[in-house]
Design a protein around this nucleic acid. Structure first.
Lengths: 250, 250
DNA sequence: ACTTGGTAGACTGTCTACCAAGTGCCATGC
DNA sequence: GCATGGCACTTGGTAGACAGTCTACCAAGT
């Protein structure tokens, strides 16, 4: 009967900034809960999502679930088939490439603008994130590494001061995080070396260099993913991605 | 704010499987109707949108309207204030700048990829669009000019073959079209000269040049908007953007 | 064996009604 | 003039109902 953790349990909040009361709309919590479940694999790819089922699972009614599902559909997390329902999106072969290409465009522009607008505090925070991330990486904490990586990228886009870039990049990053977590350990060390160079370029205010490093950084990521894919593919040409109709509840 | 993976509507279909017409979900029609009304000014900026009112206006119930409004909110067309309702978004001063900066990043990358993948047919179509657009422009048909402009840009992003770029750019373009129509006549001639150069670069397969022209093109547009804004501002410092509470129905 | 037709169940899409809580407005009262 | 309290309005969320449609499955016909 787990009700959604609408409460302060989900700690993605800057402490104390919010007004005393923050009744997050339920649909928002449902959306968060579902993306989380998709990313961590609780809801497998291709799985048929039934509104009432999710509603029951999360302890809410159909409406918030519907609204969340529609947003998930708009953002490409699930595919909505009229009259049938939602299926967790099954990424196409070339999709990761395209995603990372889009990310390259968005984030390299962000890095350029970040270099243009960087303040002392910004740079300090970037350095801190690099330090933390490298530490996680060296200690083998994959989850922490991935999270810090996301924070760093997100912070750079925010430094761009462009809300559209922030918004698009956030979406792309989240998707990348979904597809990509398994690759993280492979990339690890090199990735954080690149981050350090990037931060240096930003702190120097060197726009072109920052943009270029970010582009190459994403490009390396794409390549790493590809290699891993190629290495894993021969042994398992077609994974079990059958529609997996839900078991009869009886 | 997003429609990363449009459903079966997008061209990701194995060729030749023509699905019979399917009745569009009501929420979709409502969404289309509302964006159209926002763009053409029927729903003025800052206007208070009430669910039941729209429902009555469009002859549907609250539910599809709610769902459409939430999508509009996600995509930045309206601002949803909990407990009060939706207001048609009033663009901030710097918003157009940011929008065009994002467009520059997205479309210049698209142009680069378009140049990489261009086929003979693609180039032919681009040339045709340029011709049509120039003709509209010379005959003073503003609406046709803007529409053809949108078609050209949209086609170039599609040529990129990257569904994420297509999707993001489509959103941005639609917003630009909303803010920008008044500027079109000013830009007109120069804009289509640039389009011609761009098409040439693409047909030559010159990626860097295509990307750069597209970037400059968007930059010029931004500048034109700015100049127009500056020219109009002194005479009319604050337009009538009052909340315009709905008349009491009594 | 393969097609056709029929049937049943499961879900969505949409509508209606209803209630609680939050928001803005206005009039009252100081 | 300014705070206060009340009131009307609106959303957010719930529940139930119903038609249309999608899937699967079975049976009969060719």
């Amino acid at each position: 009967m787990t009700t959604i953790s609408a409460g302060p349990g989900a700690g993605a909040e800057p402490a104390g900034v919010r007004h005393v009361k923050r009744p997050t709309p339920l649909r928002e919590s449902v959306y968060e809960a579902l993306t989380e479940m998709i990313i961590d694999g609780t809801l497998e790819r291709g799985r048929h999502l039934v509104e009432v089922e999710l509603a029951g699972l999360l302890g809410v009614s159909r409406q918030p679930v519907r609204e969340a599902l529609q947003r998930l559909n708009n953002e490409g997390w699930v595919d909505l088939r009229p009259g049938f329902g939602a299926m967790v999106h099954v990424p196409a072969e070339d999709e990761v490439d395209q995603l990372l290409a889009a990310r390259a465009a968005l984030e390299s522009e962000s890095a350029r603008l970040a270099a243009r607008h960087a303040t002392k505090d910004d740079v300090a925070k970037l350095r801190e994130l690099c330090k933390v991330g490298t530490a996680y990486q060296e200690s083998g904490d994959i989850d922490g590494t991935v999270r810090t990586n996301a924070e760093l990228h997100s912070f750079i886009t925010q430094m761009s001061g462009n809300r559209f870039l922030v918004d698009f990049a956030a979406q792309v990053d989240r998707r990348v995080r979904w597809y990509y977590t398994p690759v993280a350990p492979v990339r690890g060390a090199a990735s954080w070396r690149e981050h350090n160079r990037l931060v240096k370029a930003i702190s120097d205010g060197d726009e072109d260099k920052a943009a270029q490093i970010m582009r190459e950084h994403t490009e390396h990521t794409r390549k790493a993913y590809h290699d891993l894919q190629a290495a894993a593919a021969p042994t398992e040409p077609t994974e079990d991605t059958a529609p997996r109709r839900r078991r009869r509840t009886t």
